[in-house]
Design a protein around this nucleic acid. Structure first.
Lengths: 208, 208
DNA sequence: TGACAAACTTAACACTGTTATTTATATTTG
DNA sequence: CAAATATAAATAACAGTGTTAAGTTTGTCA
């Protein structure tokens, strides 16, 4: 049956067209201003058609959420070439921060907005991308333990969560303008960089 | 002129009534569901009256934002009685996390939502509460330096930002459900606690 | 060609923040 | 005291939101 195949293909194509235009609006204008009607206008279909392809707005944003993770993992992949375990972990942190600062809306979607998590929740699914990400950090922490950068008795999971929290804290406080009070006295991106560098110095002391 | 006095008083009273009901709705239902019309219903005035007292919804939320800081500072004040400088800093971190977990909507308002910062921005004002909060951390970092817990050459500001970022990261990732993938394997509040404890162990190594 | 099913649209519901206009009230002035 | 004025509040409306029930068009198959 070539017809069902074509229909399947057309459905796939429209799904991707919706995601494409949704992504364009989202990256330019953010979550709030990404309305179903605006996407509908751009794809030249009625707003209700979108509901035939996505359960609701949260589900649609979950699609973008997954795309964003592909994008993030690609940005982080370059650190694999760093030979030393500790340097690799540091490079991961720096790349993560850099990604967050350069892709504010995607970062918002991945780690701050409720919408995609709500969608996952009512699907009764676990957050695979999150698991993958933290597993990456955990494997790097284990590498650091194996090379005596961190003491063997520390809990890998706790360490990974702590590392993630620090870089997320730096990025998210900045993206939500909570460093605004410093903007006249210093360059905030530099400040974030300095804080991360200090954090790295601190982590180096964990060796002994 | 007793009349202008009374009018002033009445205006003050209605301002506070609006804030009171806004706070009640906000704490129960969060930012999204705190609508002008819902507040208007509760205070038994028309929605437009609220605009005679607050420029817009952001400005109204800025009022709640400032209230929340008073609440936070009160919650943190108890750590002042901890005698040792390092223990005091640790107690501050623990209290901060505890406050965030127990007051999710207020925490959201203070450190995650854009609305209050947008309001401050168009008022061309600096974020005083934020400055006060970071100054508190900085003074504690200086105390730690004075008592040889931290090396004297470290930058106090960078250190304070790093400390804040870590605890904010832990709280905010949890509040935005980004630890959800662990919820079947462990108690997440305990996990946050464990990560913070590990962070404290790390900070202790900064001494030498 | 007619029956059927899938795809899509129209119209509507129940909301949202916000503003221009109008009405009612209270105060001041002649 | 009555008229003019200033103030406070309300009504109606604009332009938008996510979402759904009902109706229409389109394409496929017997």
């Amino acid at each position: 049956m070539g017809i069902t195949d074509r229909k399947e293909r057309e459905k796939q194509e429209l799904t991707e067209l919706i995601l494409k235009e949704a992504r364009a609006v989202f990256l330019e204008e953010g979550f709030e201003k990404t309305s179903i009607r605006k996407i509908a206008d751009r794809i030249e279909y009625s707003p209700t058609t979108i509901y035939l392809y996505f359960k609701d707005k949260n589900e649609l944003l979950l699609g973008l959420h997954q795309e964003a993770f592909t994008h993030l993992f690609a940005a982080l992949s370059s650190v694999g070439s760093v030979p030393d375990a500790f340097d690799r972990l540091v490079a991961l942190g720096r790349s993560y921060i850099e990604y967050g600062l350069k892709n504010p809306e995607e970062y918002d979607l991945m780690f701050m907005l409720s919408a995609p998590m709500d969608a996952l929740d009512c699907r009764h699914e676990v957050w695979c991308d999150g698991e993958r990400a933290i597993d990456l950090v955990k494997s790097m922490v284990d590498d650091c333990k194996a090379h005596q950068y961190f003491p063997p008795e520390i809990n890998t999971h706790s360490m990974a969560i702590m590392l993630w929290s620090t870089v997320h804290g730096l990025v998210s406080l900045h993206l939500k303008n909570r460093f605004a009070m410093f903007k006249d006295q210093m360059d905030i991106e530099k400040m974030i960089h300095n804080s991360f560098t200090l954090y790295v110095e601190l982590l180096k002391k964990f060796k002994s």
